[in-house]
Design a protein around this nucleic acid. Structure first.
Lengths: 224, 224
DNA sequence: CAACAGAATATTGTTGACAATCGACAATCT
DNA sequence: AGATTGTCGATTGTCAACAATATTCTGTTG
């Protein structure tokens, strides 16, 4: 059914999603894209005006971001975009590696043949992307590969942590190494992980999943 | 307006501390003590009146608790105290075990002789408490033992996660097994952990720290 | 010129009022 | 009766004004 444009507009304007969620997503986006640099204070009034809302939702959104580690709050002063030291980043990589391993292990233990098959497909597509020199596509597929594991592992809390830590890592604006060689190495690890999951070998999947992320940490260290 | 005396007092004592922090601590305490049962909705207006503040700080405190996993928010409906399924609790134990292991390993790698000595003292004191049949004292010492490790490991993010997961686990109101026998077993594990840390054996400390928490999960499973 | 006190300003903290939304129940229609 | 619609009360969502606090500026003083 075709809907009159003005009606559609008014519905869109009268969004059902609370403003605080919109504001939170937008603040998160701005921080992760570096539009608000690390160490900078978030000015409530300025942000509220910029986003066309009042300060209430902005404050609530900031509280929400605080728990996720993207900002830190100083009483009677304001909330500041967090900036990470090298040691903190390395710790985040360690934590994420452990949780990624756990997710891989849980998924392997489930015997989810359909997900295992799709993971194997993902690996093949990433190989294609490497061969085609299409790095953006590789990164996109890489993201969905790991998301798929996290989503199908049946461990929602671990998944939440994994995603949150992933965002936190991005506070470090440094670009990771790319290049066809390291991509091939990385995807070979993906293949082993997918195979262990398909084989239902939980211990091996866990070890490989953790090692894969530890390797990412090593690759990062080489750039420092 | 009726105001709780303790809140009023803390207001008078330290005006520097924003209300939202007081409210957050109080809400957290109420939830963890079971004063607000799992599944119950937090009524903003009622809580605000009870605590002698307006709804703003209550809402902000709720957002803060949301990220910690103690409550879940339903848009246009309210925030509900989370209640955990058995599977969720087991997952929390797994995650906490991994992070505890990580903290033990990091601490062992630091070669912090002073902390290692205090941990050994803690173990001895817990032995005394068991011999005296003083379970409350044992639990107190047990808590400080693990806090000491987390605080001295030099991994603040992991420490934060460990503490948060500990609170989350407490959402399950079930009481863990006690009794002198299981206390002795548990404290023997403490002793081994302290020894591995004192010896600077990071891998062993990590494995023992994780195993200690996995055992706690097993003891929980036996009560189900 | 440095150190300090105090006003001026900017920003966060808090509040009460109003709008939007939802669930329950009553009224109406077929 | 059963389904649909309308209304009401309770609760959350949002806002703008006011209060408290921190920061900056400035003039004064030793």
């Amino acid at each position: 059914m075709e809907m009159r444009q003005d009606i559609r507009d008014s519905l869109a304007r009268r969004r059902q999603r609370p403003l605080v969620l919109e504001v939170r997503d937008e603040l998160e986006r701005m921080i992760l894209h570096g539009e608000i640099p690390g160490g900078e204070r978030l000015n409530e009034a300025a942000l509220a005006e910029q986003l066309g809302v009042s300060r209430g939702p902005v404050r609530e959104a900031a509280r929400s971001l605080e728990r996720e580690g993207l900002v830190r709050t100083v009483a009677n002063d304001g909330v500041y975009v967090r900036s990470l030291s090298v040691d903190e980043v390395l710790e985040l990589y360690d934590l994420r590696a452990m949780i990624a391993g756990y997710l891989c292990g849980r998924l392997a233990a489930r015997g989810d043949a359909q997900t295992a098959a799709r993971l194997t497909e993902d690996v093949a597509q990433m190989d294609d992307a490497i061969a085609a020199g299409d790095e953006p596509r590789y990164f996109e597929l890489n993201l969905s590969f790991h998301d798929r594991i996290a989503a199908a592992a049946g461990a929602e809390r671990a998944r939440t942590l994994y995603v949150a830590l992933g965002k936190e890592v991005r506070l470090m604006r440094r670009r990771v190494l790319s290049g066809a060689a390291s991509l091939r190495t990385s995807n070979a690890e993906h293949g082993q992980i997918a195979a262990a999951i398909a084989a239902g070998d939980a211990a091996r999947a866990q070890a490989l999943g953790a090692a894969h992320h530890e390797n990412a940490k090593e690759r990062l260290l080489e750039t420092l």
